[in-house]
Design a protein around this nucleic acid. Sequence first.
DNA 1: ATTGTTACTATACTAAAGGATATCGATATA
DNA 2: TATATCGATATCCTTTAGTATAGTAACAAT
Lengths: 120, 120
Amino acid sequence: MDDKISFKEIKACPIQFVLAVNDTLNVINGKWKLPIIGSLLFKKRRFTEIQRNIPKITPRMLSKELKDLEMNGMVKRTVYDTIPISVEYELTDSAKSLSDVLDKMLEWGLQHREAVLSGS
Amino acid sequence: MDDKISFKEIKACPIQFVLAVNDTLNVINGKWKLPIIGSLLFKKRRFTEIQRNIPKITPRMLSKELKDLEMNGMVKRTVYDTIPISVEYELTDSAKSLSDVLDKMLEWGLQHREAVLSGS
DNA sequence: ATTGTTACTATACTAAAGGATATCGATATA
DNA sequence: TATATCGATATCCTTTAGTATAGTAACAAT
């Protein structure tokens, strides 16, 4: 019952390709996902700590986006029974491995900017 | 006057990092950019050809997104004085080189899906 | 008793993205 | 003369994303 489609097969079909890339994009889309991931890249943090880290985010958005990231297996949420209560957020291993992809995006972005500027 | 910031320096600063990655994301964001790029990845195409390639896109969106991609140095637009008029769209070299990044995203997306499914 | 902290939630709103539908100008074909 | 093609644009409308502001429960310190 191995109905998995391989990397090569997906690459060869533009529609499958676009769908699969979109899977990745959907995980990081929206205005705040990347800043949140950035904030958690080097260490786990608590809610208010992330908030301080991203000055303009509202608690509503932070809460919503963290839930989203958690649902998508990007973030692990741990509640500690301290007083007052404390909650820690950390990236999953899979999320951490995204930083390689982000590096590629960064690299391409810099190159592209160069190319566009020099070519105009 | 070399005030360029290097890859390493950007990577080291979470805020710069997020901003630079966002540059790349902004180039491919929205519902239709990726399908359009996908449609142009292997060959240049004309307006109606892309439209047929992406059945659900409206001409309004296709026109808008193509302009956007052109402005961002992703697409080159060439008008031919045929009857009726024909216009060809093709990816720039820089845009073509994005496919390496997209491959990375695809790869990560598949891995991540595996990780999330097996870990739940 | 009042104030503060943590980690949120609720309600209401505005802004941005995208969809539906009609139309255009030039020209060809039936 | 009527209809079709190409490459769009115009107008209006809906849906989604994000903002603003206030409030909550549980407790602790002053």
